[in-house]
């Protein structure tokens, strides 16, 4: 064994042998940075993603649907919390991550920059958006960073539950009155393409992907995941009697996959850069809640400090 093997090479060999990297292990600075960026972005997506769905909680059309939606959004909040903790193991505080979200330095999934004008969107989001998230996250249960992989195992179970519930909402609409059916189709028309965009730029335009694959943070390319998602989802739409809004969509016998049309990359990059219909609303809402909660957090902190002091006085007096 050469003694002049660099730490980087050792790290690569460790990862290549399918070992998990743990918080105290040495890791390349760029690996750490990539992970903080990716995990915090994932956490922010869970948190910002609460907003488009919270939009329908007060108007859910049955008490059962209201409970299911509330529970779902609560799950997403829990995912956010869990992922912030996983990112914190890499040495970045939650406060810092939230500051980066609010300043625009950190991103979140751009799908949540679209609005939810229709109840049907509660079904479509569960079906497509949680569905696309699962496609990505099942892969991440095998990611090389231990705390992230473990978080994903737990989260994936709940996401697949969300996906089934979302599909159930769409199914009720698709089998309902003509108005409901229209609602479902119109919602699918809007969300289909943004859902495909969730997998990110195509492989030839995804500069960071290759390094992430080498470090086994990622194990499948954007285009591969996108294709898997399409192949899985198209039959689900057909089963509901809904039409995928893509005239170029066609089964390709040779590839054993669906061919599909071109994504509007112009829209994709614009929404990422802040020009989506809801980018401003999402951050404004987050900042507003954060600022309005400042006095509450200060009070809780002040009270905790007073309590600690009182406890100390009690024990020193005893």
């Amino acid at each position: 064994m050469g003694t002049n093997i660099s730490l980087e090479e050792k790290f690569q060999a460790y990862v290549d042998a399918e070992n998990k990297v743990e918080p105290k292990d040495w890791m390349p600075e760029k690996y750490r940075k990539t992970l903080v960026r990716q995990i915090s972005q994932h956490a922010h997506s869970e948190i910002i993603g609460m907003q488009p769905e919270a939009n329908w909680i007060t108007r859910a059309p049955s008490l059962r649907a209201k409970l299911i939606l509330l529970a779902k959004v609560q799950d997403e909040a829990g995912h956010g919390l869990y992922l912030y903790s996983a990112a914190e193991t890499l040495g970045t505080s939650r406060d810092q991550m939230i500051a980066d979200l609010q300043s625009g330095k950190a991103k979140y999934s751009s799908i949540f920059n679209y609005p939810t004008p229709s109840w049907a969107d509660m079904g479509t989001i569960g079906w497509l958006v949680d569905g696309a998230a699962i496609q990505n996250q099942v892969m991440l249960t095998r990611t090389s960073y231990g705390p992230y992989a473990r978080a994903m195992v737990k989260i994936c179970k709940e996401e697949s539950f969300h996906q089934r519930q979302g599909y159930e909402v769409v199914m009720k609409l698709a089998q309902g009155t003509p108005e409901q059916k229209k609602m479902a189709q119109e919602s699918l028309n809007r969300w289909w393409w943004p859902s495909l965009m969730m997998f990110g730029p195509s492989d030839d335009n995804s500069p960071n992907s290759e390094q992430s694959m080498r470090w086994k943070i990622k194990r499948k390319s954007n285009d591969t995941l996108r294709q898997e998602f399409i192949d899985k989802t198209v039959p689900q739409a057909h089963y509901l009697g809904l039409t995928i809004p893509d005239p170029d969509l066609k089964w390709n016998d040779e590839r054993g996959s669906y061919d599909f049309g071109e994504i509007n990359w112009d829209e994709f990059y614009n929404v990422i850069q802040g020009n989506g219909p809801c980018n401003k609303d999402r951050i404004t809402h987050h900042v507003k809640a954060h600022e309005e909660g400042a006095w509450v957090r200060e009070a809780a902190l002040a009270y905790a400090e007073k309590e600690a002091k009182r406890k100390e006085n009690r024990t020193s007096a005893a």
Binding site: Q51, I57, K66
Partner: peptide
């Protein structure tokens, strides 16, 4: 339920939704 996504801290969002 209107506090969902609007609480002072994430943990309390979860508590109040619950």
């Amino acid at each position: 339920s209107k506090w969902c996504s609007a609480g002072p801290v994430l943990e309390q969002d979860i508590a109040i939704i619950n």
